[in-house]
Amino acid sequence: MSDTIIKFDQVVKRFGALTVLDHLDFNVQRGEKVTIIGPSGSGKSTVLRILMTLESISEGVVSVDGEPLWHEQKDGKLVKASEAHLRKMRVQLGMVFQQFNLFPHMSVLRNITEGPVKVLGLSKQDARERAEELLEMVGLANQAQKYPHQLSGGQQQRVGIARALAMRPKVMLFDEPTSALDPELVGEVLNVIAALAEEHDLTMLLVTHEMRFAREVSDRVCFFDKGKIKEQGTPEELFTDPKEERTREFLKAVLDG
């Protein structure tokens, strides 16, 4: 695992006067499962949103599989990425949202097949087969014809996961995937994510408050504070023997809370 798929190089993100990411350096290896934890406002979701091209960056360079995401080469210089470049880069990433963001006017099946058919150019039949496999995988094999509002939050989020996977991304981004769920529905979603984590090739970036889960599935845990990685390491290192005072405070607060 020495093959870097995601690289943040001195990345700064500002919203007006507020600096959300402060000269962040952050690398993820191919196939690595990385969990990002930290207090709200620490910039952890922003990392995912920048990768999904939902937020631009103010300074620095972000690379995905060796190629700049927010820049492109033009006459030997790095210039701001065009929409065409972003479209080309975006196919490598998939995202699961806190609020699911399923399309309410489309059936479960259509939610999953729309992208593969209209963006990737798959035939309807192929897209349908792919969707059915994925629904099977997330435990919703019989729900293809339902509409999102007919499903529970946990089921909706599992459709969200299937929808993102249907695009066959190299990197899956999970932005607090269980934060909007009732406590009894969290487990079913975490189980699906844990099963995905078994897949060797898939790179996963997960922002979560589920510390126990982070400990189980991640190769590495990063503690974000004030737009930087304050501390990182294996789950063992970070959870049992945090070096930084700030990390200890945070872990104490969330684990007691």
């Binding site: 999904m52 091209t53 939902l54 479209r87 975006r90 196919v91 990433l93 998939g94 995202m95 949202f97 609020q99 963001n101 399923l102 399309f103 729309e114 992208g115 209209k118 963006v119 929808r163 993102a164 695009m167």
Partner: peptide, 15 residues
């Protein structure tokens, strides 16, 4: 229309 709908469409690379 909720912002999340636009974001989901963008994440799926819709034009």
């Amino acid at each position: 229309i909720a912002k999340g709908q636009h974001e989901a469409a963008r994440a799926l690379n819709f034009t």
